[in-house]
Amino acid sequence: MVGITEMTNWAVDLIDVRKIYGKTIHALRGVNIQVGRGEIFGLLGPNGAGKTTLVKIMMTVVRPTHALGTLLGRPLGHRGKLAGTGYLPEDHRFPGYLTGAQLLDYYAALGKVPRSRRKVNAAKLLDRVGMSEWATTRIDKYSKGMLQRLGIAQALMNDPELMVLDEPTDGLDPVGRRDVRELLLELKSAGKTVFLNSHLLSELEMVCDRVAILVDGLVARQGTLDELTEETVEYRIAFSGDARAIQEKVEALGASLGANVITVSGHDTGKVNAMIDLLRAADLSVESVQPHRFSLEDILVQVLADQSATPVARPVHP
């Protein structure tokens, strides 16, 4: 069981979340994810990994087969705490007969936001997402990008402590994506927690404090970007000349020889120096030494290549 102290520390604390559709489809197989307050947390993974199912379970849209943990300090599925969350689902469909302003008012009323605040917030948020001029236009006249902007505005109508955004930049042009990034950073600076599910890894890399990689219904990796990329640093030593004579020695030291490049994995600078010495001893000219850190995309590809994903242990403190 989760202790009271811990319950208040994490904004999101998911423990052993499982979902089985029917009797055979294991969408989630025991997910553990922790998100600290004030963090921007990114969830990534390939299609069918269970990301959207997990988000829907958090927002009570899908009923879990088994789940422990808390959301904003209260047990998962606690209705009252949903008043403090904002949610933008993937592939949302808003009623076409409403105008943008009416939609914001409708969803905020369902979220128990008082009428006086609804009006002020709607005007402010429509302006914030660049939709003021379209406030009184029917939604069925909106483009996909406009719907996405409106969706983000509706998720903010209750001034939430926690924002859960499923593919928030879907359908947005580059300017729109930049706006969303700025908005997320604004929210973070205001102390809000953001839980982000996105396919766009570069986007996640730019804004997320921590990420989790979901593969086949399990968290394969979880941590800060530095933590995740630490093991994946490598040095690339470019040289000129024929290095076939030293190939065995290079490989014996745990490096790999490519076309005029030696790649040394990890943070081992001693090994890098040894390689440089080896090249010089063979009368080869060293042209450059470049550290290279893996991107999230590299890490995801690496994780997918390693199909033996195992659950990640739950950290003790946020």
């Binding site: 209705r79 009252g80 949610y87 369902l110």
Partner: peptide, 18 residues
């Protein structure tokens, strides 16, 4: 059917109402 369509009901179900 329109109210409970996939994508339409998600936002509503995430509100504080059982």
């Amino acid at each position: 059917p329109a109210f409970s369509e996939r994508g339409a009901l998600d936002v509503v179900l995430a509100k504080p109402i059982n």
